[in-house]
Amino acid sequence: MTQTNTPVPQGSPADRARWRRYLADERAEAVVYRELAARRTGEEREILLALAAAEGRHEAHWLTLLGGDESGVPRADLRTRMLGWFARRFGSIFVLALAQQAEGRSPYGSDPDATPAMAADERIHGEVVRGLAARGRRSLAGTFRAAVFGANDGLVSNLALVLGIGATGVPASVVLFTGIAGLLAGALSMGAGEYVSVRSQRELLEASAPDPTAREALIDLDIDANELALVYRARGMEDAEAQEQAAKLVARVQAAGALSGAPTDALGVGADDDEAIGTGLAAAISSFLFFASGALIPVLPWIFGMSGLSATILAAVLVSIALLATGATVGVLSGAPPMRRALRQLAIGLGAAAVTYVLGLAFGTTIG
């Protein structure tokens, strides 16, 4: 009699239902990584394809427990399907940040049917995706920071301004022109301040960076007695490591007989932060535009002719929606729970506006 090697289904109906969900999610996550890999080249592409292959191993585990029976496999959960949709259309830092969160929510650590290796894989996958996302976060950190802070400041400060002025009982036209004045003044102030801030940061970094002309002295250093190790020690290296680094560099330069043997950053230690800071002009423009766009939202009811309590309520609602959106965006990009960040942003913004509104009511009553 011929024997077959077909796996036998295991587990209770509840177990098999859970395994089918895991199977669907693993397949969907593998698709996400392949979609992201299709938009990248080189090392990042290889890393993403390796992650997809690892999800395939997990898929095979659940399929084995199911005895190879793929009937009744549901659709992946909504979060994973949305992640795949974003990956197909954007393939950006947002998708990597969401994937990082998804890996962190893996249930394998507490599931008795998942192997310890699978649980460990998911934790390591989270760190891999975190590393890939960090590259994108680093490239947009300076400009994105200015944009988000600019929009948030515009929303909160101008809402507080128009609510505080409106609560005093002044005509709607006064509230409108006050809001427009606050928009222009705040946007110009934010843009100028951001430019000065970023330029100052860059100037501080440049002052601390190694002098490129100092490389010219390397060819003439005494290989047995020189102070090059002190440069590395001054920049944070331990004595033994500094001595070893200095000896290797001097020997290499002298063996080459020319400066071509020394790398451009030969006297430097540590990563360059210029990319994370961004440029002063980009940060200033970004801050100006986003502050202005944020500050425009609370003025919209008065622009369209509304006044009184109805305008106040609509302005608060519009700003609340925008605060939730900016807070959630920051949460996604930082790898934190977006809803928590969104609610925090909302509470801070509306809290500040409420204080100025109450003060406006008090001043209006006093004046009246």
Rank of each mutant, 00 (worst) to 15 (best):
R34G: 04
R34C: 03
E35H: 07
A37P: 03
T41F: 02
E44R: 05
R45V: 09
I47C: 00
I47S: 04
A53T: 14
A54Y: 09
G56R: 10
H58I: 14
E59S: 15
W62L: 14
L63M: 12
L65H: 12
L65W: 11
D69V: 11
V73M: 09
R75N: 11
L78T: 07
R79S: 10
T80S: 01
M82L: 12
L83G: 03
L83Q: 02
W85P: 01
F86N: 06
F90T: 08
G91C: 07
F94L: 09
F94A: 02
L96G: 03
A97K: 01
L98K: 02
Q101V: 05
A102D: 07
E103H: 03
S106F: 12
Y108S: 07
S110W: 09
A114E: 10
T115P: 05
T115S: 15
A117S: 15
M118N: 09
A120G: 08
E122L: 05
E122Q: 15
G126A: 12
V128C: 00
V128E: 02
V129A: 00
G136C: 01
G136P: 03
R137A: 00
R137S: 00
R137P: 00
G142F: 07
F144N: 01
F144I: 02
R145M: 10
A147C: 01
